[in-house]
Design a protein around this nucleic acid. Sequence first.
DNA 1: CTAGGGTTAG
Length: 714
Amino acid sequence: MAAPFRLRLIPFGRSVWTDAVRPDPPPVSMIDLLARLKHLVRSGRLADAHRLFDGMPYRDEVSYATLLAGHAAAGDFPGAMALFSRLRASSPPLAAADPFVLSLVFKSCAEAADAGFLPHAASLHAFSVRSSAVSSVFVATALADVYAKGRCLGLALKMFDEMPHKNVVSWTTLVASLTRAGRRHEALRRFSEMRTSGVHCDSYAYAAALTACADAGLLSRGREVHAFCAKLGLDTTPYVANTLATLYARCSDVDSTLAAVSRMGTRDVAAWTTVIAAYMQTGRAKEAIETFVRMLREESSAAASPNEYTYAAIIAACADIAWVCIGEQLHAQDARKGFAGARSVANSLVTLYTRDAGCLSAADAVFRESLVKDVVSWSAIISGYAQEGLDEDAFTLFREMRHHSSCPRPNEFTLASLLSVCATAAALDAGRQLHALAVAAGLEHHAMIRSALIAMYGKSGSMLDADMVFSHRVKDDVVSWTAMIVGHAEHGHSKKALELFKEMCRVGLKPDHVTFIGVLNACCHAGEVELGLRYLNEMNQSYGLHPAKEHYGCVVDLLGRAGRINEAEELIGKMAANEKDGVVWTSLLRACAARGEEETGKKAAERAMEAEPWGAGAHVAMANLYANKGQWHEAAQERYMMKQKGVVKGAGWSSIAVGGEGKRVGVFVAGDHTHPQDSAIYRMLELIYYGAGMARYVPDQLDLGSELDMMISS
DNA sequence: CTAGGGTTAG
């Protein structure tokens, strides 16, 4: 490409020879050169473009801008800055404050999405002010976008405020920036302002407004915007159609999603992916996978082959129904197609492998091998360790995340996972620190965080704190209500739990499966047999929820404790065969043991052992039953059978954190004498019992016994 | 020759 100009530099003698063999090509005009440069930039051949650029007889602002567009598209801010410096140093001098040039340099920075470049952008901002280039709406908009994408929304908003004349693009940038920052309602207010200011909206503007609606789940507002763009015929443009589809998908309206997609000529990749996602969001993983298969079948005719987003979605579908083996095949396909390195695919693979406890190391491997990690990557792997109860690993990863060079900000998913770790470990101090982090991140009132905080405080024994969080509730969050009910139930505040349940129903909230676990648990603690039976019935009749084994288990326990053993046995009979697990039979057995019901007890023990041949609970309970009746021989027989089968009675471990800063966690079992200071510890324990006795908190011996039993059998 | 938009993962 650069050849014509090089030829003239060749020494005269050879030039004659060259001319004789190959005549000098006709002189190429600057206009042609620019067209060639533009073509190279458009086709992404940046190195070739640079060669042509260097060979040009002279370079003006237009040629610089053309080449800069290539760096902007590639998100190459350093390259753009290098070119900009060259322009400033050029002789004869060129206008560095050219609005075309500056807006492209800013765009390259916005595309780069690297917060480290922000100071350079700020100094270019100063240059733009000094040279009055900011008065260009192009420069100002590009710069505002840099600030917004660089997490400096305040600065971006200031830029928008100071823009004397906003056009569609600047308005749209404003709306999109607010949406990205999670301020969707403000974004929509600005969208209305744009419309009343008389600016003509285009498809970009509608897409931005629809995204705000989709993110905020504002279905009716979205329908309004839909009507506006349908009137202008813009709902057939691919971007708008896909944004509409996303809106309806987020609102779980699959029919409208399909309708929106059908408005565009042919489904593109994004449309297929949105449809798959819509099925996913409505819990129809099978249909999502069917859609993917259909997409593959139509791939050749429709020219919409799955991309990394599609694979991310479909692997997520496999994760959702724990189809790890199919997901593994998709993993292999991705590796072949070169998608496996894509962050979105890596993230959904991590999620897939965390679905199966045995695959946690695979999840870890995918996580470690992914080059670019974001909040989602970290949250996914943290949640994997959290689900397995590996609290140490989860927190180690969190620490690593916070010290990582990309310093991703923890969001609601990260903090909710860690809070669930604190809940299971009853780690109140760590939970409080996470609470502080949530406040600092402005996530305090997020539904996911609020319910996680309530559960954490509840499980850590601080219902007062749980109540504090709950009092800031939004009225339609079933999960938070449920966490409160479960919390009170677990603390034995049965009355409070049942009152909350009634209030929840009164304000029109629909309880779910988990809510009823809390409710039945509360009935169980309070010995409210009739109420428990009524709620179990109501769950089915009034709320259309099929009781699961957890619910039956609760009521079986309730009936058993009340000595209504026949009814408990009858209730078990109503359960589906595959639901009758060791837990429910053990509940019945425990009731029989307490009442000396040998016959039913034997039956229950047999069933429990069938369900859990590895379990020790049934043997222990039977041994206790015989021992209580003084049938020492039979009791010994049970112990002997246990030994023969090789079942090991799992010890109930307890843990306690000792000391303040850098404290250590100690673990122990009942009757433990392994600690070097055990005699001192037991003496202290006696003092505590004595003190508790003075305060009339002597634990009921019988109750303590059954608690221990439960601990052993669990 | 310039600025803005849709699909995914926890």
